[in-house]
Structure formats: structure tokens, C-alpha cells
């Protein structure tokens, strides 16, 4: 699998619109918190946090911004600390906080069962193999007892990781998303039409 991100919008930064009519005060307040008040660890243990960090590095690799990766784990920790659920849970799944605690422990135990080392100690390709096995319910660790590996991976872990990542302006910029658009909105709606405040694509592939 390619480990390179194919940049399409190198000249576009959605934050350039910060002071434009596309952003209003409410949106600036929300995004400002996200950028500059990254939550501290309050729910996960230090060890759980670090395992989850390693998992996120595989689920959303960010080799192109090694110095300043988009933070993901802090926002998951905040959601768990506040116990903000998604409004449902699948039958035979434990409540959200339990599911995350047990899921993180089970990822680490799955790594040991397969490769004889904790998840963080494995090279990237073995980490990926562990995650892929979990995704497909093909697990060896007994730690998945009472916790569907597939459901945990798809409906909690991956869903939340991508929700946090694609809530970040850096992610909006890299996909050419217009981002916040109130009150100005958009004018040009047709094929290949672009308002001057939208991203210009450089390298389509």
C-alpha cells in the first residue's frame, strides 16, 4: 500500500478564509478551540493513550506532517471523559467507555498473541496485520470475549478516528473541501464551476 499522500490542493488552506464572510464568530470559536485548546488526558491511562496513539498512526498515517500531526487521541479521550455517546450501541456490545477500554487492551493483546510483542513495539506492517485481523473478526486473543472485534473496529474505533481527523481544518484543506460557509455560502454550483473562495485543484489523478 502506498504510504504517500497525493497532494491535489497544495495552494489551498481553508484557514485563509478565517476573516472572510465564509466564517462567522460561532464557527471561529469552535474551530479555535479545536486548534488551540487540545484537551489533556483525563480518561484513558497513560498506557492506553499510547497504544491508541500508535493505532491512530496506522489508521490515519501523517508522514507529510511529522512535526504537527492532526491530534486525534485527545478528542477521543475527551469524548470518553464526557461519556458523550453516539445515541446507540449494538446489542452484545458493552457501554461505550467499557468498549474502548477493553478494545484498546484487546488490540495490544492481539499483537502479543500474533507477534509476541505489544502493539507499540511492532513494525508498521505487523501493526497493520493486527488491525486488519481485528477488522475482519479474525482474532486470536481471548480478550475479545464479549466484545465483537469487528464492531469495535468499524463502529467505534475507525468511525471515531476519522470523525476527529476530518473535523480538522488541515483535513478539509487536503481534500479541497470549502469548509465553513456561513453567511456567504456559494454562488457557482455547476460542473467545473468554482467560486474564488474555493480550493483550486492542481494535480488531479
Amino acid at each position: 500500500m502506498s504510504e504517500r499522500f497525493h497532494e491535489r490542493f497544495p495552494d489551498y488552506d481553508v484557514l485563509d478564509k478565517w476573516d472572510s464572510p465564509s466564517w462567522n464568530d460561532q464557527t471561529r470559536a469552535v474551530v479555535n478551540r479545536r486548534l488551540h485548546q487540545v484537551p489533556d488526558r483525563r480518561f484513558l491511562s497513560e498506557a492506553e493513550w499510547q497504544i491508541l496513539e500508535a493505532v491512530c498512526e496506522r489508521l490515519i498515517p501523517q508522514p507529510d506532517r511529522r512535526d504537527r500531526p492532526v491530534p486525534i487521541v485527545p478528542f477521543i479521550d475527551e469524548k470518553l471523559f464526557k461519556n458523550q455517546g453516539d445515541g446507540y450501541r449494538f446489542e452484545a456490545m458493552p457501554p461505550m467507555r467499557d468498549a474502548w477500554r477493553r478494545g484498546i487492551a484487546a488490540i495490544d493483546d492481539e499483537a502479543r498473541a500474533r507477534w509476541g510483542g505489544g502493539f507499540r513495539e511492532l513494525p508498521a506492517n505487523q501493526q497493520d496485520a493486527v488491525l486488519r485481523a481485528i477488522q475482519h473478526n479474525d482474532t486470536r486473543s481471548a480478550a475479545w470475549q464479549g466484545l465483537s472485534a469487528k464492531r469495535f473496529f468499524s463502529n467505534l474505533l475507525l468511525r471515531e478516528v476519522v470523525s476527529v481527523y476530518y473535523a480538522h481544518p488541515a483535513a478539509w484543506s487536503e481534500i479541497g473541501f470549502g469548509g465553513p460557509a456561513s453567511p456567504r455560502g456559494y454562488v457557482r454550483l455547476g460542473f467545473d464551476r468554482r467560486d474564488s473562495w474555493e480550493a483550486e485543484e492542481r494535480y488531479a489523478r
Partner: peptide, 30 residues
């Protein structure tokens, strides 16, 4: 769909993650 919803659809239905996901997401405007 907006980006979070679209990412949820791609991951939930096709199971993509990793750089493959980021590159797939970059086709958003097409």
C-alpha cells in the same frame, strides 16, 4: 455528504483506512 459523513461512509462500507483512505478522501470533489 460533508467530509466526516463521507469518511464514515467510505470506512463503514469499504473498510478503507490508512493512506489508502486519505488518498480516496482526496477525490472528494470528483
Amino acid at each position: 455528504p460533508l467530509p466526516i459523513e463521507w469518511a464514515g461512509t467510505i470506512t463503514g462500507q469499504r473498510g478503507l483506512w490508512g493512506m489508502e483512505l486519505r488518498n480516496e478522501m482526496a477525490k472528494y470533489n470528483h
